[in-house]
Nucleic acid binder design. Structure first.
Lengths: 169, 169
DNA sequence: GTCAGTGCAAACTTTTTGCAACTAC
DNA sequence: GTAGTTGCAAAAAGTTTGCACTGAC
């Protein structure tokens, strides 16, 4: 629990999960809390596989792949993690006490960045849905990151120059 | 091309794809156009597998799984299809000339419904992104559909009644 | 003591890839 | 003619499942 979250936050999160497990008649196993701590120690977005590697490689705690997947589902249910389906599989993100932000995904290189928007946030929290009880939102903006955009511009420029050269000859 | 789209729209879509292929130096194969037509004949959301089944079962055109996946990617690139990562795999949706709508996803039964929101639409189209050139958006609202919500309420009521009964005895 | 939870590997689902055959240009 | 495409099957990637064992209650 060194990286992303303070010790105080960590304790609260453990309490929240503990309460969730109690409410749902689930057992408080060391594996579940180890996964919770490992998840909250990750930075930004991470996959189930990355969390597993982090846990086993650093010899923090041995857990099986199946238990990681099971527990991640519980943590999503308990609103302690957000699940995003970006790229090949799923990516997770810490959600307790985190500010509401949105994701920009580059369709060229797959880079994911975050941004904030007050007006959008206001609209989303006051959104009127049809025959539906909203609980959470995911907004993804697809496009090109600045790197890929400038690479594309250069490529297009080269093509135009090449074409002009051809016309002259 | 009977279900979702008129013949006129169909022709435009074929032209758009044709132009896209030309611009990108790609070949105009019968498979590609057959997949485009089949996709635009589908209703609402569909998976790669569903499209393949639709095409082969109805003996419209024989294509391989790999070609369907390849072509779907092209159609997404050409902005003729939207790709959503809902549930297990990917779901596609016709996007040419379609109104901008958003998706409500039931976390209990997985049902996907659409809704519109003028204010949100305005915000999204005038969104200020950071170091990023936006091209498209996906907004998913997660929660409970009315069916699952009322089922949950009934279940909770049963539990409360049961608990009250226990206390009396 | 009991049964939910775990580990492990195998199964499963969805998507990608390698390669020979084909065909649009 | 030839390089881009296709079909097929095999492989890869991500996730779930079955079953025997373990440990939280």
């Amino acid at each position: 629990m060194e990286k992303g979250v303070t010790v105080q936050q960590s304790n609260v999160v453990i309490q929240v999960f503990s309460e969730y497990l109690k409410q749902h008649g689930l057992r408080k196993t060391p594996e579940r809390f180890a996964i919770l701590e490992a998840a909250y120690a990750m930075n930004c977005h991470f996959t189930a596989e990355q969390l597993l590697t982090e846990m086993t490689e650093n010899q923090r705690f041995h857990v099986s792949r199946a238990t990681v997947y099971n527990t991640m589902d519980l943590l999503v249910e308990a609103k302690l993690l957000h699940k995003h389906r970006i790229g090949g599989g799923a990516q997770y993100e810490v959600s307790y006490n985190s500010d509401s932000h949105y994701h920009q995904i580059c369709t060229n290189c797959g880079a994911v960045t975050e941004f904030h928007d007050v007006k959008l946030h206001k609209d989303l929290t006051t959104l009127k849905t049809r025959r539906f009880t909203a609980q959470s939102y995911s907004l993804y903006v697809y496009g090109l990151c600045s790197k890929c955009m400038s690479a594309l511009r250069k490529k297009q420029k080269r093509l135009i120059d090449k074409d002009n050269g051809r016309k002259k000859n």
